[in-house]
């Protein structure tokens, strides 16, 4: 049963809530306002002034911070003259000591280093042409789709909180020094949160539409 009375243009003016399937007329909100689903309160449209430029800037910072954070010392420990320093990469590879846990090392490396960087790069690739009012880049739709699918698997901010918990656990056993990479990861946490709150997915999809 095809809804013959709905033209293509009619469908373009509708938006469906992805969480509860409720359909609405699109009334574009002002910049800074949000359109939310009346039933389940999912944010549907949330345009912001210059969100594109801000998102590109945030994504660039994320790439730089993650790469730098893997190079610089992260945490170091000192007990009675004996010391040891660990980088983020050391932490990710901590499980590689036993053969069964190597898989876990790969997974941890992926979720705290590769996925956040890949998402940021994909976002830069998708948004740069849009911001410059050029036609979307080749495969931009696929790139944005991948970036969206990877969203739950980007866990850099969770790793940062994990550091805090680990610090509390060993604080009374040993003296712990925070390296530059620790502060980079803390900054990363803020950036990841900002990235998610600045992004209006509806606006991005709309501008990718041919």
């Amino acid at each position: 049963m095809a809804p013959s009375d709905l033209t293509e243009q009619d469908l373009q003016d509708l938006i469906a809530c992805p969480t509860c399937d409720a359909v609405y007329h699109i009334v574009p909100p002002e910049k800074g306002q949000r359109a939310v689903c009346a039933r389940c309160h999912t944010v549907l449209i949330a345009p912001r002034k210059r969100a594109g430029e801000q998102l590109i800037a945030i994504a660039l910072s994320i790439v730089i911070l993650v790469v730098a954070a893997t190079l610089f010392p992260f945490l170091s420990i000192n007990v009675g003259g004996l010391g040891h320093a660990a980088s983020v990469l050391d932490a990710a590879l901590a499980f590689s000591s036993s053969p069964l846990l190597v898989v876990l090392s790969l997974a941890v490396t992926a979720v705290i280093i590769f996925v956040p960087v890949l998402r940021a790069l994909l976002l830069i690739y998708v948004l740069t042409p849009i911001v410059r009012d050029r036609p979307p880049a080749d495969h931009a739709i696929r790139a944005f789709r991948l970036s969206e699918a990877l969203r739950p698997w980007s866990m850099a901010e969770i790793f940062a909180i994990g550091c805090a918990v680990a610090l509390v656990k060993i604080a009374d056993l040993a003296q712990v020094h925070l390296g530059p990479a620790f502060w980079m990861f803390s900054a990363l946490m803020v950036l990841v949160v900002l990235q998610d709150s600045f992004m209006c997915r509806y606006t991005v999809w709309k501008s990718l539409e041919k």
Binding site: L75, S76, I77, V79, L82, G83, H84, A86, D90, A91, A92, L93, A94, F95, S97, L104, V108, V111, I112, P152, M155, I158, F159, I161, G162, C163, V165, A166, K169, I170, A174, V176
Partner: peptide, 21 residues
């Protein structure tokens, strides 16, 4: 759901850091 991974990260950080011979 994702935040439960925190336990795994704590283990990773502790076991990479506390290596004092």
């Amino acid at each position: 759901g994702r935040w439960s991974m925190i336990d795994v990260f704590v283990v990773a950080i502790l076991s990479s850091l506390v290596q004092l011979g």
